[in-house]
């Protein structure tokens, strides 16, 4: 797969949808393409976070360690973006990500990510938009959960 194809993939990711293709190309060029075989971990919960990953092909599970053992909380696939929290706010990985099929990713290092945001502020705005959506989504999920809890209690 050449860099042009990667750019096509990046364009389809909502986070990068409004960004100029030549910027995406630079990002693709500057980032490393990493392949994970089925069962390999991208990173482990509690590790220091140094990079985010964009999925180009394949799937992975997000696993959280609980008292009852590992729990799969989500699954990601093509065009998804994982690991951004750790590089944005310098906290350890909040979950483990494990490939469930052969997984092709673009590894965006912390340094590269910040460089891109600095140089192309429109990317920063885009990141904010996506994160805001997620908060919105999480908030509505929380409200829902509260309602369910209240119903149960009531």
């Amino acid at each position: 797969m050449s860099i042009e194809q990667e750019v096509e993939v990046l364009k389809n990711i909502p986070l990068f949808a409004n960004i100029d293709p030549s910027r995406l190309k630079l990002m693709a060029f500057a980032s490393e393409r990493l392949i994970f075989k089925e069962g390999k971990e991208l990173f482990h919960q509690g590790d220091a976070g140094d990079a985010a990953y964009i999925f180009i092909e394949g799937e992975a599970d997000v696993i959280v360690d609980t008292d009852d053992g590992p729990l799969v909380v989500a699954s990601f696939g093509k065009n998804d973006f994982v690991g951004e929290i750790a590089i944005l706010c310098d906290v350890p990985r909040t979950a483990t990500v494990k490939a469930t099929s052969e997984l092709i990713t673009l590894k965006i290092t912390k340094e590269l990510f910040f460089n891109m945001v600095m140089d192309f502020p429109e990317m920063g705005v885009e990141v904010m938009r996506v994160l805001a959506h997620r908060i919105d989504h999480t908030t509505s999920q929380l409200t829902e959960a509260r309602n369910v809890l209240a119903e149960k209690a009531g």
Binding site: S22, K25, L26, F29, A30, N115, D119
Partner: peptide
């Protein structure tokens, strides 16, 4: 295409 818009001191030049 990739680098023309970047300032000359940008570390991308050296790295990539």
């Amino acid at each position: 295409e990739l680098f023309m818009g970047l300032p000359p001191s940008h570390q991308f030049f050296e790295q990539f």
